[in-house]
């Protein structure tokens, strides 16, 4: 789970989290057991549909300003340690 969340935690941290998560899961267990036959899910409180933007070009950011805020950059690109493997 920590790998999926991309958190590099120590064994102690993981052990503590495990206990806290299990307490919390107990706490929300009521939801898991809720009788919800025929109840549709609500993903969002607003009943809006079809919100669009016209296909018109707007100003982009200045590259120098953006790259200045980056931890590292080179030749107009963001620089990162080697990416191993393809996207999943």
């Amino acid at each position: 789970m920590a790998r999926l969340a991309r958190l590099d935690l120590t064994d102690d941290e993981l052990a503590a989290l495990k206990d806290e998560l299990s307490d919390l899961l107990d706490h929300v267990d009521r939801i898991r057991r809720l009788e919800t036959h025929d109840v549709p899910p609500t993903a969002h409180p607003l009943p809006l549909t079809n919100v669009f933007r016209p296909d018109e070009v707007a100003e982009s950011l200045e590259r120098d300003e953006v790259l200045a805020a980056a931890p590292a950059s080179e030749n107009g690109r963001f620089l990162v340690p080697p990416v191993l493997g393809e996207a999943p």
Binding site: E74, R77, F78, L79, V80, P81, P82, V83, G85, E86
Partner: peptide
Amino acid sequence: RIHEAEQSLVDY
């Protein structure tokens, strides 16, 4: 080559 790269550069 992807597996031997020393670093990677990203263009968005």
